[in-house]
């Protein structure tokens, strides 16, 4: 599979994750979200989580499991955001899976 972004072809795997993590740009995230069966227009709340995931990956070299993500978001962004209900409302396909995909990260190991 592949994404077409401003004339450039970006390779993804069969689930839509980037083949090459260095291909990521914010436009890639936007394009991935719009390519969903029900297109998603990314808002500030989405970006807050996407950026958080990118920083987590930068520091630890892994995409966090959803349980770890929830806890870490709660600590960093407040308890009203550090819960499954909030994260699923933003990323209904699973906060780990869907948000990591938009963030250009690999699919979290053993994640929802």
């Amino acid at each position: 599979m592949a994404l077409e972004i401003s004339g450039k072809t970006i390779a993804t795997d069969e689930e839509g994750y980037l083949e090459n993590l260095n291909d990521w740009t914010p436009e890639v995230a936007t394009a991935m979200a719009l390519a969903e069966e029900t297109p998603v227009a990314l808002n500030d709340e989405h970006w807050e989580i996407i950026n958080f995931l990118r920083e987590y990956y930068e520091e630890y070299q892994i995409a966090p499991a959803v349980r770890v993500l929830t806890k870490a978001v709660g600590k960093r962004l407040g308890a009203d955001k550090g819960n499954s209900k909030y994260l699923y409302s933003l990323f209904p396909y699973g906060p780990g899976k869907q948000a990591c995909k938009y963030a250009g990260l690999p699919k979290p190991t053993g994640c929802v």
């Binding site: 520091e59 630890y60 070299q61 892994i62 770890v68």
Partner: peptide, 14 residues
């Protein structure tokens, strides 16, 4: 090879 040593610092979160 990928440097996976930073990941040991995430173990506490787990």
């Amino acid at each position: 090879m990928k440097n996976f040593s930073p990941t040991y610092n995430a173990l506490g979160d787990y």
